[in-house]
Amino acid sequence: MVEWLAFYNDWAVIVIMMAGFYIMIARYNLVKKIIGLSIFQTGIFYFYVGLGKVDNGTAPIFLEPKVIDESAANVASGIAEQTILYSNPLPHVLILTAIVVGVATMALGLALIVRIYEKYGSIEEDDIQAIDSQFICQLDDKK
């Protein structure tokens, strides 16, 4: 039981990702798709940030400016100081970038949706498809 609990976080994250993924590919509503995308991506963010978590750790911000001194006494006290564990900052940096990428994609997608609504009067995938195929039929009739 406890062994499986160790995986709980990972699996919960996966469930979240897949929920987003499902919205993206199964829902016809374009806005929903975009929301799904952001849920999918946040799932990935948890995954990354989870990788950097260290038990008993704290945010990677040095609370007190460390004195850099090479003398033996300070090295000894430094050992004591280093009992403060810090979480891995690298995933945080990556995810900061990824969040920005995510919101950029979202903005572009939503702008497209607004324009699509102007042109089609609908933001449902199946409606758009129907209108497009009707349009093609009209083109064929003209010939």
């Binding site: 607004v114 609504y117 089609y120 009067g121 349009f135 009209q138 083109l139």
Partner: peptide, 26 residues
């Protein structure tokens, strides 16, 4: 700005798309 300045357009959309609009688009 972009997402708020388009507001005035909303009233001008006809549903569903009329035939003339289809023609003008192609």
């Amino acid at each position: 700005y972009c997402f708020s300045s388009k507001r005035n357009f909303v009233g001008h959309i006809s549903h569903p798309i009329s035939e003339s609009e289809l023609d003008s688009d192609g």
